[in-house]
Amino acid sequence: MSRLRIAGVTKRFEGADGPLTVFEDLDLTVADGEFVTLMGPSGCGKTTLLNVVAGILEPDAGTVEFDGQPVDPGELPIGYVFQEPRLLEWRTVGENIDFALKAAGVGPEERDRRIEAWLDRVGLGEERNSYPKQLSGGMRQRVGLARALAIDPELLLMDEPFSSLDEVTARGAREDLLDLWSETGTSVLFVTHDVAEAVVLSDRISLMDENGAVFEELVVPHGRPRQFDDPEIHETQAELTRLFFEEVE
């Protein structure tokens, strides 16, 4: 059974030149424990879709189902990692995670335990009392990841989380993400415009065009753990790139 099922979702914005349809009648599923990536060019509405799933935006039509039940996305325990870390700069690293844990209704002792544990797991055990501005960009992004995972989410949403990191840092962060994902078994909906990243990380990739329509779905044929420099993976990346640019000019 699929963990997340998005059926016939439509989203429009009121623009200066009349309504602007971001995507229309969109379907997408994420199975339990599956890592699904939504890939598309900038401005195609990937972030908007994540915001609909996260309950930040109301869809104009369609349903979001969870474990077979239609749900109000605002109610779900969803972890969200944004493109920029979006931390409260006036709170310490620990307090930033606490902010999300409190909202999830976790008790005080359990909150303390989880903050400790998750900061350790993302390699920031020493930084609990640091302020975000004292950390590097990669460290801040890892705080964002710890915050999202600490609430023990039913679904993890990730919006190009590594796009602002340099390649070396990003590669390390991707490996860490895969480790954490295999340990926790969380379902992930990941958004990127980076073909290489999509192939390395995902079980399944949905390709979106500029108009917000999914035109292709591809199951990544490689087993795990994956070697980032495996020639077979490079081949899949090349094929996906070709597929993508045939459709998207």
Binding site: F13, G15, A16, G43, G45, T48
Partner: peptide, 9 residues
């Protein structure tokens, strides 16, 4: 700024 672009992405 019209704001629409900012809302989409």
């Amino acid at each position: 700024t019209t704001g629409v672009r900012g809302m989409v992405e």
